[in-house]
Design a protein around this nucleic acid. Structure first.
Lengths: 144, 144
DNA sequence: CATAGAATTGAAAACGGTTTTCAGTATGAG
DNA sequence: CTCATACTGAAAACCGTTTTCAATTCTATG
């Protein structure tokens, strides 16, 4: 059992949520995924180990995990309802356009840019959003 | 009449689309907006000058403008279906969280970061997506 | 300017993903 | 073990978007 699964389940419990089979199944799928998954994908995968699962519970669990900042929503050209584990402090994503695999990277050097833009525009910058898209090593070779 | 409105209409015509009242109304609203507008917002505003307009035509016109790269879709926490004029070469957005006004800025200094991330991960980076969120000068004062 | 034929229109129906409702069930505190 | 209640899945409702379709509007051509 992945350490992340355990930690998410503890986190849910610590916030007063009950640990149910439905939630366990959803957490196990999302916490260990290396790709961003849509609610329907989570549903289909999680149902392999807990066939009684309802799609509604997937939505509800994703909402909780999102509120606890354990998962983040990923936006792409072809849809904005995919979820991915949130790694503390590594908020930027690099997504393979072919296989959808995601890598995390940090963007420390962005602070200077933000400061400059804030100064030029008079905005108080409060958050940002950076995603890169491309081909992962495996897909790069597969395509060529 | 804004230069951008004229230019968009010419662009539509040059691509074989007819110039109709519905399209004119939609183009006039979107091309001159400083905020990202949802299809429904476009519809409501455009109907002031062309009441016969149907919501369907808004969707269809936005799709065309998007295909011609004249508008871009803006993604935000609370929705991903807002459209904004695309300014050639200035692809990054700074969005006011309060009034939704948008500023454009360029992010030339990002190339180095992309190169570094590409090298570290083995990805071939093909595109990117950067948005900043904050408070514009006016809203900064209004809030405090 | 008039005509004809194709592109375009708006209304309504269909669609698909998400949310709400609800009666039954499983959880976990005591 | 018992009980109150959080939680469940199914079905219905919802809502933004897309499709369908008959009527209308453009615009190329004569």
């Amino acid at each position: 059992m992945s350490i992340r699964v355990t930690s998410w389940l503890e986190s849910l419990q610590a916030h007063g949520y009950r640990l149910t089979e439905a939630r366990r199944a959803v957490v196990e799928v999302v916490a260990t995924s290396k790709r961003a998954l849509s609610p329907l994908e989570v549903y289909e995968i999680a149902r392999r180990r807990y066939p009684a699962l309802g799609l509604v519970s997937v939505y509800r669990t994703l909402e909780m995990l999102s509120a606890l900042h354990l998962v983040q929503r990923v936006h792409q050209e072809d849809g904005c309802n995919a979820y991915l584990p949130s790694l503390e402090g590594h908020q930027h994503l690099l997504i393979c356009e072919r296989c959808r695999r995601v890598e995390y990277f940090d963007g420390d050097d962005l602070e200077a840019l933000f400061a400059r833009v804030g100064e030029q525009t008079g905005f108080e910058i409060r958050s940002h959003w950076l995603q890169l898209f491309g081909l992962c090593q495996a897909c790069k070779q597969a395509v060529s």
